[in-house]
Design a binder for these strands. Structure first.
Lengths: 218, 218, 218, 218
DNA sequence: GATGAATGAGGATTCATTCAT
DNA sequence: GATGAATGAATCCTCATTCAT
């Protein structure tokens, strides 16, 4: 399908140069299309970006909801959230990077809608920490700050993870679950507690060979 | 001095819209200058960005070096590093954000030079963790990952800290020192161990009233 | 028949926005067709315009010829000409407007052909005035100017007449016959002199509900 | 002054091809400027058109007001109005044509504003006819229609008058004053009644050598 | 008879930059 | 030190048109 080829080319370029610095002709060339034809599939540059970001945020939100719904134990919920976030970011680093950095490029209703999705996700994380603190399982002085620290940690995974690097997605998930547990002052949930692993989803818009310059994990 | 007014206006706009999306006439207007006059002070758009980023990275590097030089104890070094990084980011959130996000906008030698500065800083952090692990004070399974987690946490401070928010710079520094200590599996250095506080530097290019849309800490 | 639906949609759009400002996709949408299908019926944008204008000018010419042929009395001929022109314009205001204003949009042979038709019509009017002056029935200082004044008066009917307004087509015809007679310094021909009324023709390309913004007669 | 050269070139092209069919690059070339430089002077294509049309309508309105203010006699007022309208159209045929035909090209507030000016002018004409009818000097069955006929006659002057043709501006004014008087059923005001002649204004935006294809008076 | 896909050319506008004043 | 004028190149996007299906 051609619409996906367009998106994949766009994600690579947006991740590399940034949305504003990427021209429509470049986007066309990356998809093997005339720049005019691109409008047939994508309907404008911002629409293209919106669709990419929306697919990423909606999947993140879906995965986060599933993570929280599967258990009542904040320790387990937190571990699953981290696994979901890290997994999605590591499996789709370019899409995740674009989604994280280019919200400012959106205008009007598009911006509001996607900011809303992002806020929805972040408040899921916040509520899990709150509950952990209430149950006494977590030990955090400032719930809001702890959430921001965790989100920061996870968000940046997309900036350095490389599929062809030293670490598998599972490795990074495991380590980050531990980091997160430590940040909130609890023991990481065990594999047994987590239940069957939720495979992170590979997004249709994520380029297959992310040969993009980035900080590589070695 | 007018060159500083130019930089401050530029930082605000770059942080808000991004470098590529900011026009040189906007930069001029923000500084109260004709766009042609701007070339007198800043000598082109990329030069302007380079100077901003260089001042930020050099200060970060200076502060990190000072942090490490003042002690041999990895716990103390880590705490001081975190305080420096968080302090600089929180006191200069717009500049820090631009510095973190716009390296990709640079070309040729400028890019290489600033990537070099960033790597220099990151390797200081890496070495401190390594030493902590070697001395047995830190408990980390993967040194590289721990460094990335800490850097991620700290880098994103610039994305949400607000001077007029609920928390002082010192508050955030204190909490993040604790988070960092937990991530590497150690106890945070006490105030006494840290010695006299190194005041974070307010950069000349940081706008005074950062009334810029961002995720606010509440 | 679909070709007529295409023409009707085109006339409305051309009359509203102008030929050059109307896109071929708009034309398609107005006819409920894909823009490619439109080529099947109309064979290109200019062809579409030519056919519209030609049908209007040919009808005008036909009606003018019939008006002149029916009598030898310049007073009667003039009255019939005016009735024909005003009737056609009022019954087909959108088509008439397009025909009057968009000759400049035509190229090459198309332009020459339609300019020819228009000139043919105008010289019929001119000859009637000339004859009236020669017979002493008309009192005009400058034949050419009188013709231009009459044509101007009648041409603009298409710019303000509204079928759903206060006046019927017949009303306007009657008044304009009187105006024209006065301009050339004669008494208007009576109904009896005119003979059986020639009903103005409703063109196939004229949209049925001319809900187009125009100066309304109130 | 360069801004006038821009306007003059624009008027010629707009009158010739129409606003929508005229490209910005053509406008630039006609003024001997790069298309980008044109924005320096004119600030966009629509702005350029608006300024042209406004100058024409404002002058028309000014002249009409002066015509009416100078006398209480509807016959005199009418004659002066016609002289003003015809004079302005004949002295500035290209500008007048553009002003008359391109209102539809305007958008939003621009359109409203200029439609307002046009309506103001037309209602001046309407009121003069009304008064003439009330005083019994004019003999018209339908005031509104008489006004439309007069306006139509005068408006089209811009479509055929040529400065280098057979007739002077004064000739056309004289004849049209007579036509108008006849249309409303009165005797034309004499030169003595009219008082000192109001010279029609040559607009700054009217091209000096109107070598533009048009119906020539011969 | 109808259409989605495709394209080169061109639409208006803004770009970063230079330079004479 | 400061600026208005100027420009070629680039911006995003729409144009009219063709053609395989």
């Amino acid at each position: 399908m051609s619409a996906e080829r367009v998106q994949r080319g766009a994600v690579r370029l947006f991740a590399d140069r940034g949305y504003a610095a990427t021209g429509i002709r470049e986007l066309g060339k990356a998809a093997g299309l005339n720049s005019a034809t691109l409008y047939h599939y994508a309907g404008g540059k911002e629409d293209l970006l919106v669709r990419i970001m929306r697919s990423c945020l909606e999947e993140l939100l879906r995965a986060a909801t599933a993570a929280v719904d599967g258990s009542d134990d904040p320790r387990v919920q937190l571990a699953r959230l981290i696994r979901a976030h890290v997994g999605l970011s590591a499996l789709n680093p370019l899409t995740a990077r674009v989604t994280d950095q280019e919200i400012r490029a959106l205008t009007g209703a598009n911006r509001q809608a996607l900011l809303g999705l992002r806020d929805d996700y972040e408040s899921i994380v916040g509520r899990v920490i709150e509950r952990g603190v209430r149950t006494g399982q977590f030990d955090v002085a400032d719930v809001r700050l702890a959430g921001l620290a965790l989100l920061g940690m996870c968000n940046e995974v997309a900036n350095w993870y490389r599929p062809d690097g030293r670490l598998t997605v599972g490795d990074v998930q495991d380590r980050f679950v531990e980091f997160a547990a430590r940040v909130v002052g609890t023991a990481p949930a065990t594999r047994a507690e987590l239940g069957p692993d939720q495979e992170p989803v590979r997004l249709a818009c994520e380029p297959v060979d992310p040969a993009v310059e980035t900080r590589q994990v070695t």
